[in-house]
């Protein structure tokens, strides 16, 4: 499952070109539809459509197959339970729904970049601007997705380390170190965000924003090629020398 979080690849398939909100709406609509209908024929039809959509995004084969195998295993277990209860139709419907929704979710993630997702979240959260800065919410989504594989890896390493010490039967030997490391990772990530000046608020950040905007647009031009603007020793704001900005930007295209 974990491998699926990084399956986005830039491409020009129809789903890649579709706006993120449309894809989310489609995911929502089809999920509701498939859960609401209990007719196995509709279920299988939706399943086929979703698998086709997934294939149309040309996702990385290995990661996708691995993820789908995991979901299929889940679906078989769920269906097996229904069969055991004697409800064959429900078994088919349930397994079909599960696989269809997962495939569609994958189709969306494999065709939508994190930046697009963040933009969507930021836009959706705009009405809540007074409660929570939308950029922060967008970042939260990215960070959550970022943290899942990291936490999984920490857990795997803790298991290996516990086994190396012959402690694999002791849950404490796995949970305590992975808990501590997860917190450590979160702290480091927080500091890194802080250091990169991402998602800062308050007066100082707004003042910095104003400065940034003043330099705006061209500020991110050549990084290594050109000496930066250093403050005059008097502490006055120096004039920003901007030789031939336009020409430079054109060349970079």
């Amino acid at each position: 499952m974990i491998t699926l979080l990084g399956i986005y690849r830039p491409a020009r398939t129809p789903l890649h070109l579709a706006p993120a909100w449309l894809k989310m709406l489609m995911l929502l609509g089809i999920s509701i539809l498939s859960l609401a209908t209990s007719d196995p024929v509709t279920s299988l039809g939706l399943l086929a459509a979703c698998l086709l959509l997934l294939a149309s995004t040309r996702p990385p084969l290995k990661a996708t197959l691995k993820g789908m195998a995991f979901i299929a295993a889940l679906a078989i277990m769920a269906a097996g339970f229904q069969v055991w209860l004697g409800d064959y139709v429900r078994a088919l419907d349930l397994a079909g729904d599960l696989i269809a929704i997962s495939a569609l979710a994958l189709a969306v993630t494999s065709s939508t970049s994190m930046a697009q997702m963040m933009d969507l979240v930021v836009r959706l959260a705009a009405p809540l601007r007074w409660i929570l800065p939308p950029e922060t919410l967008g970042l939260l989504v990215a960070l959550t997705l970022r943290a899942i594989p990291e936490a999984a890896q920490i857990l795997t390493e803790a298991r290996v380390a516990a086994r190396a010490r012959g402690l694999e039967r002791d849950p404490r030997a796995i949970l305590i170190p992975s808990g501590a490391r997860t917190v450590g990772f979160a702290l480091q990530l927080g500091q890194a965000l802080h250091a990169r000046g991402i998602a800062e608020h308050g007066r100082s950040a707004r003042a910095a924003d104003r400065e940034d905007r003043a330099r705006a647009d061209e500020a991110h031009a050549p990084l290594l090629a050109e000496p930066p603007v250093r403050e005059a020793p008097t502490g006055e704001t120096p004039e920003v020398p901007e030789p031939n900005r336009r020409g430079r930007r054109e060349r970079r295209r």
Partner: peptide
């Protein structure tokens, strides 16, 4: 610990 986004270009874009 400093990289946040899933791909290289997205991380710089952040």
């Amino acid at each position: 610990a400093q990289l946040i986004m899933p791909t290289a270009v997205e991380d710089v874009a952040l």
